[in-house]
Computed example of a mutant assay.
Amino acid sequence: MTGDASDDVLVERRGAAGLLTLNRPKALNALDLGMIRRIRAAFDAWSADGGVTRIVLRGTGRAFCAGGDIRRIHDEAKAGGPPAVDAFWREEYALNALIQRSSKPVISLIDGIVMGGGVGLSLHGSHRVAGERYAFAMPEVGIGFFPDVGATYALPRLPGAFGTYLALTGERVGQGDGLAFGLATHAAPAASFDAITEALAAGEPVETVLGRGPAVPPGPVHAERALIDSCFSAESVTAVLARLDAAAAEGSDFAARAAATIRTRSPTSLAVAFAQMRRGGALTFPEAMLTEYRIVTRILQGHDFFEGVRAVLIDKDGAPHWRPDSLEAVTPEMVEAHFAPLPNEPRFG
């Protein structure tokens, strides 16, 4: 999974800014190990360079970054087991941790899709600028995976139960809701991203540059925040669904849609993601990343990830056969096993 990432990640020192441009538009800038290593090398160099006072991330095409190269990860893990892709997780999660503890501002200019690994690159940085096509999601439970790349730490720290809503539904969030819930810190028209980059390269104060953006009203999800907090604060996924069903029976189309979506997801992934959301608020960032490393290792030893990728990305029949196929069949012991320590664990801070 190494490959030659020199064209897939453009690395440029421009004035006071280190500029990283994800340049794999046909793949929606999906990350492979070579790209992660190139980004890491740039961060390491710029962290030690006193002339670089801010780091800027951008993406070409209609995505900032749609995540990791899941199809390639699937194929390599299926052929060689978890060890075949172990370096990818270790190095991606280490990069997430490096960004989170950066002493220099990390500014992501996001117009279009930001999911999975793209969230890991941007959400833990100091500034996230949402363009008008901004579309955030962590849809991993839909392919038998789980919200990783630091979601264990970040999502429980969002307002109310919004993080649990994102984790269990995988639904997309647009510009207004991204700002309202704190996923984005600023807004700007995508057409101004070049000018923003130049102003940052010229050394202008980051807050001054980004503060010129427009005021954007909250989106439709924010209008449902009371319902989200009421339903997604329940004590289990089954209880969340019961509350959503009750709200749907009282006429909430939003609740009905959320419940229907959750019922299409992997029961195991839902139970693991719910446990993440309940535990993550008490973890440090390195602890959260270690937790995710434990979970991903167990996920790749199971069934649902391979079945989910088959159904969504390979055969594209949209009809995954989950095992177990119901929430009731997912025992507490099965969930707990995903969080158990592993031999030879990495450190993320």
Score class of each variant (00 low, 15 high):
L33Y: 10
A5C: 06
D75G: 14
T291D: 14
L183S: 03
I107H: 00
A180G: 03
E132W: 00
P343S: 14
F43R: 08
L22N: 00
T164E: 09
G219V: 04
H222F: 13
T264F: 11
T268H: 05
A249S: 14
I99C: 08
F146W: 12
T152P: 07
P343W: 03
T284Y: 10
A154I: 06
E198H: 11
R90S: 02
D245G: 01
T152W: 08
F146I: 08
L33E: 07
I107R: 02
G125R: 06
P139Y: 06
S266W: 11
V106G: 03
G213L: 09
Y293A: 02
F254E: 07
P267C: 06
P147D: 13
N344Y: 01
L227C: 05
S192E: 15
L20A: 02
I55F: 00
V129R: 01
G302T: 13
G349K: 09
A154K: 12
G219W: 13
I299E: 12
D49H: 12
I55M: 13
S192N: 10
L283K: 07
A42R: 06
A271K: 09
P217D: 10
S122G: 02
P343Y: 05
L123Q: 13
E224S: 04
R278F: 15
D44C: 01
D177A: 06
Q100I: 00
T291N: 11
F136L: 03
A184P: 09
L158I: 02
A16H: 15
P214V: 09
Y134D: 00
G203I: 10
A195I: 11
R54D: 05
D32N: 15
F305H: 08
I107D: 01
A248G: 13
F181A: 04
D86R: 15
M115W: 10
L95S: 04
E307P: 02
Y134I: 01
D111S: 14
A260M: 10
G182S: 13
P105A: 10
A288H: 02
Y134A: 12
H222Y: 15
T60R: 15
A190F: 11
T53A: 10
E12S: 15
W46C: 03
R62D: 13
L283I: 06
R157P: 08
A223M: 11
D148R: 02
A94Q: 11
I143H: 08
S6R: 14
